[in-house]
Amino acid sequence: MRVCGVELKGNDAIISIIQLKDGLYDVPKVRTAKFTLVDAINTEPLKKFQFDFLQLMKDYKVDTVVIKQRDLKGKYAGNPLSFKIEGALQLMTELNVMVISSTYIKEGLSKAQVKPDAREVGLKLFQEPALLTAFGYLEQQAS
């Protein structure tokens, strides 16, 4: 199973792809670490964002996309633009997209023998929350 973890920050969708095959995890090299929605008002940039994201998922044969849930209100509330990006991702019928809570991710990570480190698997440090989102999901599915 190949999963793409997504962390939404501002107008960026930061991604990390991880695969679980025969009980082993693999983090493939991916041509991009994040997608940016450059224009939050007009339709065409949003369609391009969706197209580019979907194309990457097809190219890397991703089965599931998991988005790390953000708070709706309060000090740590998500940026309004990030919710627009989340909606755009969820509306792509070609993908299995779900939003998962931090609690769900933490439960999955607690079941793991070793927690992955972004730098050790060849990712940038800013991709670590996306990596842990995908890894936590896979650990929950494995149990």
Rank of each mutant, 00 (worst) to 15 (best):
A88M: 06
D12Q: 13
G78Y: 03
G87Y: 09
A118L: 07
L37F: 08
K68V: 05
L46M: 14
Q55C: 03
Q90H: 13
A130E: 02
K106M: 11
V30H: 01
Q113L: 09
Y104Q: 14
S110Y: 03
R31N: 15
Q19E: 15
F135W: 07
D39Q: 10
I18A: 01
K84A: 12
V62Y: 00
A142V: 03
K29S: 14
L24C: 07
D117P: 04
T43F: 13
L54W: 00
F135D: 05
S110P: 01
V27Y: 08
L132I: 12
M1A: 13
E128M: 12
K73E: 11
K75F: 06
L95R: 00
G23K: 14
S110W: 03
F83P: 00
V114Y: 09
P116D: 08
I85A: 08
L91N: 15
K84L: 15
G108W: 04
L54S: 01
Y25E: 07
G108Q: 05
I41K: 10
T32L: 10
D52S: 04
T64M: 14
Q113M: 11
L95G: 00
P45D: 05
F35D: 00
Y25P: 06
K115S: 11
Y137I: 02
G122A: 06
Y25H: 14
D39S: 09
Q113W: 02
I15E: 00
T36P: 00
F51G: 00
D26T: 14
K115W: 03
N42E: 03
K75A: 11
S16W: 00
P45E: 09
L54E: 05
L89W: 04
V65A: 05
K9Y: 05
E86R: 13
R2D: 06
Q140L: 14
L91A: 12
D12E: 15
K29T: 14
K106Y: 07
A130H: 03
Q90K: 15
V65C: 09
A142R: 15
C4H: 02
Q127K: 06
I14Q: 01
K75N: 11
M98W: 04
